[in-house]
Amino acid sequence: MHADVFDRYHESESRLHRLDPRVKVAVTVLFILSNALLPDGAWSAFGLTWLLLVWANHLSRLGVDFSFRRSFLALPFALAATSAVFSPLGNPLAEWRLGPLTLIPTDYGLVKFFSILVRSWLSVQAAILLVAVTRFPDMIHAFEHLRVPKILTTIIAFLYRYLFVLADEVVRLLRARESRSAAAPGVRSARSVLWRAKVTGNLAGQLFLRSYERSDRIHNAMLARGYDGNLRTLNLHVMKPGDWSFFSMCVILILLLQLIGRL
C-alpha cells in the first residue's frame, strides 16, 4: 500500500500552504467554535461563513469547490439529528402516523435541524481544508507549540508513522483470510457468525502481537540512532508578521460573523 492512501495533504504553492501551522489550527478551531455559537436560524451569518470558506478555498489554490466536494462525510450522522424535527417546543406543522408513533414536525424543530446540518457541514469543510494545506508532521508541531502535552503529540506522531505499516499488515491478514476462504458456486462457504467472529478475533490478536513486537524493534532501532525522547524537525516554525496579520484578520472576520448572527 502506498503511504498516500491515508495522507490528506495536497501539495501546492499558496498563501494558506505557507502559513504557520499554528495559525491554521487556531483559525480552524475558532471557525468551528463560531459555527457552534451562532444561534439557530442565523441564515445570513451562515451564508457569510460559507463565503469565508469559499474565499479560503480560493486562497489555497486547490479550487473553489475543493472542500465542498469532500464534505459529505458527516452526512450519515445527520440521521441522528432528524428527530430534532419533531421537537415539541415549536408550533406543529403536520401530523404523521407511523404505526404506534405519531410524529409532529414543528417549525422550531425544522429550523433546529437545518441549523445543525449547516453547522456540521461548514465545520467539516474547515477541517478538510486544514489537513489539505498542512503537512501532518507540521500540524503535530503546531499542537506542541499550542501546549498539547508532549507525550500525546509523540504518540500521535508514532501513530501517523506506523499507521501505514500496520495498515499493510491488515491488508496482508485480510488477503490471507480471503485466499483460504474459497467458495464454490452455490455452496455456502462461510460457517456460523460465531466462527467468523472468532476468525476475525484471531486476526485482531495476531495484529496486536505483530504490532507489539514490532514496537520493540522500532524502539531499539530508534535508540541506535540516538533517540532521546524528542522528535526533531528542520522546520523551525517562527511566526512571521504575515502570519500575525492573517490571524488577526481571521479573528476580526469571525467576530463580525458573530455580530451579524445576533442582529
Binding site: L166, E169, L174, A190, T200, S211, D216, I218, M222
Partner: peptide
C-alpha cells in the same frame, strides 16, 4: 519508562488498523 511511548504510539496505530477488520454478520 520512556520505552512505553513508542509502544503506545504503535498500539494506537494498532487500534486504528484493527478498526479496518470487519466480518460479515448478516
Amino acid at each position: 519508562g520512556e520505552k512505553q511511548v513508542p509502544l503506545m504510539g504503535v498500539m494506537a496505530a494498532f487500534i486504528f488498523a484493527a478498526q479496518m477488520l470487519n466480518f460479515p454478520v448478516a
